[in-house]
Design a protein around this nucleic acid. Sequence first.
DNA 1: CCAGTCATGAGGTACGTACCTCACATTTTC
DNA 2: GAAAATGTGAGGTACGTACCTCATGACTGG
Lengths: 346, 346
Amino acid sequence: MARIKEKRATVHDLARAAGVSLATVDRVLNRRPGVRPATISRVEAAIEALDFRRDVPASLLARARAINVTVLLPDGENSFMANLSAAIEEEGRRRAAERLQITAQRVRAFDGGALARTIDALTRENCDCAIVVATDAEEVRAAVERAALRGIEVVTLVSDIPESRRRHFVGIDNLAAGRTAAALLGRFCGEGARIGLIAGSLALRDHQQRLQGFRETVRGKFPGLRLVGPLEGHDNAAETAVAAERLIAENDDLEGLYSLGAGNSGLVAALHRTGRAGKLRVVAHELTKTTRQGLKDGAIDVILDQNPQGEVRAALEIARQIGLGSYPLPEPFTIELGIFFAENLR
Amino acid sequence: MARIKEKRATVHDLARAAGVSLATVDRVLNRRPGVRPATISRVEAAIEALDFRRDVPASLLARARAINVTVLLPDGENSFMANLSAAIEEEGRRRAAERLQITAQRVRAFDGGALARTIDALTRENCDCAIVVATDAEEVRAAVERAALRGIEVVTLVSDIPESRRRHFVGIDNLAAGRTAAALLGRFCGEGARIGLIAGSLALRDHQQRLQGFRETVRGKFPGLRLVGPLEGHDNAAETAVAAERLIAENDDLEGLYSLGAGNSGLVAALHRTGRAGKLRVVAHELTKTTRQGLKDGAIDVILDQNPQGEVRAALEIARQIGLGSYPLPEPFTIELGIFFAENLR
DNA sequence: CCAGTCATGAGGTACGTACCTCACATTTTC
DNA sequence: GAAAATGTGAGGTACGTACCTCATGACTGG
């Protein structure tokens, strides 16, 4: 019978313990100026000693303004981004009661300059924390740096900017996704089978990583597999269809396909047109209307999904904690790779 | 640029709109006695009209007592239950700040009478909501009924009591789990392959459902497969080992195994002892220390996992909402089936 | 040594709800 | 038609934090 109880320290206890006034405690807690470093240390020591944690409900109640969160995500008709966008809307509504004020803004896709300018336009007035589906470009990295200096924390979503001052990354492990695809196709297909690869663009870091993971596992566990490609489908249906048809036409012994980008409606169409739907073992990414249908009618065997709703939820939770200035800094959420067959579609 | 803003109605607005006093609004909101049905309706109409939702932070702050949640789970050294228990401890700590008072209590496994008595012992004084890993027995169903009448809401976790007055069920879809296992083994093994089945106990409803889902998909998609078993391993290592060795010994053409219960350390041991580790395609349930190791060394191909931490989190969230008496009743959380290979172990 | 700056204290109000008490009005009961 | 029970109103305090103002003491540089 584990009983978890609690008689928590308040700001008053802190003040008493540190031998300072309530006002000073408040200044330290809310990072307001006007406190000597030595005094700050005393207060922080008291926080430590009393295991003080801000009472979130009370804090939320007392603070006048909401926590402003700005979400920046690429434009375009991509159906994954549409899902992401819908998830943001919904979670935003759900969390409005907790004084989270969410603003979503679309930025030109693949345009580092535009994204950087949008980030630069954010001010402390209208934004405590930015959630960014990042384009991995030097300009963006620099803009994140400047934002951090202005006091605006950045959380990257779906695609990361490594070695930047972003506070967190929320997304799946793309290396693991690639490895998993290989683990599946390796078991689905025969020993020396030929497998085709279609990427969106090798300039995208997530696609690169998926490819790398895939090759790693093939090398390690299924060295007999013979890979062709990757061809690039640029995340769009038409080009992806062309790529798929080419792979099929040029390799009559093709047994499997791994599509590691978007544009899967083209892939499905190509499979049906060539009569290979259900005959090839196909692994692709992202649960969408098209891929869902593909699973059901057997054109696609497995979908690896990054669960946009879960990602949005995690990113907002981190943003909330950042906005509240919570002392124990938010721990990173692990977003799990979703693996879907026709049999476990949600 | 979707902006989600709000200017929410307060209890004062409600009182004005309904033409009653604050005290009456309060009585209605907190289901206290002393209000005529007609007046209650007026207040509820105002709630509807103004789209009033209780301010959770303020409510939490104002209420004197914490929300008492009691978790009842089976005893025994089962490593899945140990994980579940650990998750409860951790989530309990994490959420203590939100005035959730969590008490975990272990009850004799498979003993419906004991569980029923424990539920009957709960009072409104010490418990607003009970989270129960249920044994599916008539006595338990009746105890849940009595609890509901006393005003104690019950949420079932992991295993459900259908057609009872429990308020929610948090757990995976075991039919889908069984179907997924079949989808995997069907693709891993050859057309007419022989597959062995090991259950914990067919008296357990979740195991039954997994078996049912498995057979369903085999019938529909892989009718060539020849199934043997299920043998029962009673969720314990020794018996499971015996069952596995028997299946292996009696079927020299065995290509795959689906272990749909616990006791998987016995399974792994048997695979190694008979030299079939890595040669058979094996699907089993629950990520534990043993199965994790089994994935890594190749004895197990796939683990289907129900993510105890996610389940606990979901159940606690529901309990919290129940405890707060939130007006829009909590929506059921879907717990997703986790599918793990060596390649995407978290 | 004086003006100016900085660090701190004292004390207050506000947030929205829960919960309490007491008084008064209305309805029910015999 | 008096007594009892019930419904409702008025008003207050408390929860823990944020944020504000004003006063004071200490230290700085010229």
